[in-house]
């Protein structure tokens, strides 16, 4: 049998092998090696080209090429059906739960403080810290609270001993800053504060404050209003309105309290705002000249404003938390919700 004859027979054999093939990775691979391998039939047929009769060479050449393409095409086809068969066969339950990455959570008050701090940072305020155990001087005297004055009753104080106490507000940080830096200064003071008040759903002996201070030439009450209004809109939503009511804090004059329209009812009146449509969120005012002078700042040349708010209360309002003790009980089911 000459080679051309042999080739024709090979092609017939290939076809019957394909027809009889049981589709497995192994059988397809065997077939590939048999026909397309280094020592395979196709290669053998090409190698024998010189032994073919000269008049048949052209025809033979064409025949082997066609055969080769046919084998390649068929084997590729078989390999594809193998992959398809495999993916179809795989059991896949799309209703099984996913495997989740593990993530922790920030304390809700950390979350609130972060949001508040960010807004003021974008307005050019920097952050200052200070000690929680303070002297009477920084907590009261330097802030224009006279000795034996009823203003001190506004803040029930924990004492360590005479003239040493747990800070009742973060304002002592402001005093320390005023004594450390020269104006202009613009800073906020996040931190924990202490009041000697019985622990209940509504009040705790520890809570947090963020106070702000801005001292420069020509700082006005009008500037304060703008700053607070922008803060309120950015934190509570752009439709929120603010209102300023005169109030009294020894370290500011004039002093004011700020209400925002209740963001729960939109000012219509609800249980949270006690039907008033307003929520009290902070105290503020122009820094009292006595406070500036006490810290060595010329109160004729410089003026400033200060404000302070309680992130605990704001967090409670924002999420509808009705018991402040939840913040310090640390039930993991509570903590995990603030992500």
């Amino acid at each position: 049998m000459d080679l051309y004859q042999e080739a024709k027979q090979n092609r017939i054999d290939f076809q019957s092998e394909i027809d009889a093939l049981e589709l497995t990775e192994q059988s397809v691979e065997n077939l590939r090696i048999k026909y397309l391998g280094k020592k395979g039939i196709i290669r053998y047929l090409f190698q024998g080209f010189s032994s073919v009769k000269p008049e048949e060479k052209k025809e033979y050449g064409q025949f082997v090429n066609v055969f080769k393409n046919e084998v390649e095409g068929k084997i590729e086809e078989l390999q594809e059906s193998l992959i398809k068969q495999k993916t179809v066969a795989e059991v896949f339950d799309h209703t099984m739960p996913g495997i989740r990455p593990q993530r922790g959570s920030l304390h809700p008050i950390s979350l609130t403080m972060r949001e508040i701090v960010k807004i003021f940072q974008e307005m050019g305020f920097d952050i200052e810290f200070g000690p929680e155990v303070e002297t009477d001087y920084y907590n009261f005297a330097a802030l224009n609270f006279p000795d034996n004055h009823p203003a001190r009753d506004m803040q029930d104080t924990f004492f360590v001993e005479k003239d040493i106490l747990l800070r009742t507000h973060t304002s002592p940080i402001q005093v320390r800053a005023m004594q450390k830096y020269q104006p202009p200064m613009r800073l906020i003071t996040p931190g924990r504060v202490f009041r000697n008040e019985a622990v209940s759903a509504r009040s705790h002996c520890i809570f947090h404050q963020i106070e702000g201070l801005y001292i420069d030439e020509n700082v006005t009450f009008a500037d304060l209003k703008t700053t607070i209004d922008i803060f309120a809109k950015r934190y509570f939503g752009k439709n929120v309105k603010t209102r300023f009511r005169p109030s009294f804090f020894p370290f500011v004059e004039p002093g004011a309290e700020v209400d925002v329209t209740c963001f729960i009812c939109g000012g219509e009146g609800c249980r949270v705002c006690k039907k008033t449509g307003w929520l009290e969120i902070m105290g503020c005012g122009m820094v009292d000249p006595n406070v500036l002078e006490e810290s060595g700042i010329d109160s004729e040349k410089y003026s400033g404003y200060a404000f302070g708010m309680g992130p605990d209360r704001i967090t409670m309002l924002k999420y509808g938390i009705d018991d402040i003790r939840l913040f310090f009980d640390s039930d993991i089911k509570f903590l995990k919700q603030f992500k």
Partner: peptide
């Protein structure tokens, strides 16, 4: 020069959360 200590503390908080830990606050008293 913003307060670097504050930035550091906030970074730590974020990182510890990233490690899968839940932050809690306990009483100073």
């Amino acid at each position: 020069e913003p307060n670097k200590k504050h930035m550091f503390i906030e970074k730590m908080r974020t990182d510890l959360c990233g490690f899968g830990l839940n932050e809690n606050y306990n009483n100073t008293l």
